[in-house]
């Protein structure tokens, strides 16, 4: 292979990309996908195994997905799909931002001040075990309109996760850093700004990644139960209106977007914590 590389006279970046694409790992990954797709196709359409036969076929889903004039009205070429994606994304965005803006400060204080934690944490822990979806009817009762309950539910899930992880992030900061800061003459506020916040950052971002996932989870559920537009809504109505291929399209879109939002949070975290990236890189090397 190296001889071929030399012949092609590539620059370093292109070369490493090609190496990645031709690596055994990449082959395995593609093979895995292909095996899965084959299994889907064979079990549903070709062999028509019991139970599997009722599922939408791979062919139906694909043709529907890429057709300019889909039978059930939703494909990557239709306006409708993007309407739903946008609706869901906007809701997740609003819920996530709200949960982060409220959850991170709460978590920071819970971790930082023992007094505050003794007062507030028990109430927090009483509310947390209630599954987010158990709030659905109450949310519908509390909030008028259709959007607000849905966003509230997505917010709730994210909020608890973010606050909890932030609190844990503060609590795991080594005592020595606090002591060093005090020795060096920092007052409480300065310790908060220079030790607590940066020290908890890795945990905060792990929490945020989980929180995005929880946000989608809660949102989809809420949309399925009560909503208009949105990917959860589309999955549910496609089922009730017997448009099975659209269900799959909705699911795939959800998975794809969920992954992207998670990756976005991860990359923001990486850029804010360059110090950690370098540290991790060195420890592996």
């Amino acid at each position: 292979m190296n001889k071929i590389m030399l012949k092609l006279n590539l620059n370093l970046r292109e070369e490493s990309l090609i190496r990645k694409l031709l690596s055994p790992r990449f082959f395995l990954m593609i093979t895995g996908f292909v095996i899965f797709l084959c299994f889907w196709h064979l079990s549903v359409e070709v062999w028509q195994l019991p139970r599997f036969a009722q599922l939408p076929t791979l062919r139906a889903v694909v043709t529907e997905f890429i057709s300019t004039n889909p039978i059930y009205g939703v494909s990557i070429f239709t306006h409708e799909l993007y309407q739903h994606i946008l609706a869901s994304c906007l809701r997740v965005f609003a819920a996530f931002i709200l949960a982060t803006l409220l959850g991170v400060p709460l978590g920071l204080f819970l971790g930082w001040s023992t007094k505050f934690r003794e007062y507030v944490f028990p109430v927090f822990e009483m509310l947390r075990p209630i599954p987010i979806l158990a709030w659905v009817p109450l949310a519908i009762v509390m909030f008028t309109g259709i959007e607000t309950p849905v966003i509230f539910l997505a917010f709730l899930g994210s909020f608890f996760v973010t606050a909890l992880n932030t609190m844990l992030g503060v609590q795991q900061i080594d005592e020595s850093y606090f002591r060093a800061a005090r020795c060096l003459g920092a007052n409480s506020f300065q310790v908060f700004k220079h030790v607590v916040i940066p020290g908890a950052m890795p945990f905060i971002f792990t929490g945020l990644q989980i929180s995005v996932g929880v946000c989608w989870f809660s949102l989809v559920a809420a949309e399925m139960v009560s909503g208009q537009y949105g990917l959860g809504y589309i999955i549910n109505t496609s089922y009730t209106n017997v448009r099975y291929p659209t269900i799959i399209i909705g699911m795939i879109t959800l998975g794809f977007i969920g992954y992207i939002t998670s990756a976005m949070v991860r990359s923001v975290g990486k850029s804010l914590m360059k110090w950690r990236m370098r540290e991790l890189a060195l420890s592996e090397g």
């Binding site: 099975y244 909705g250 699911m251 998975g255």
Partner: peptide, 16 residues
Amino acid sequence: FRPIPPLAWVPVAIIF
């Protein structure tokens, strides 16, 4: 598959 929320599977599960 992981980012697909479990609840999104409900219709498929009911069919299957």
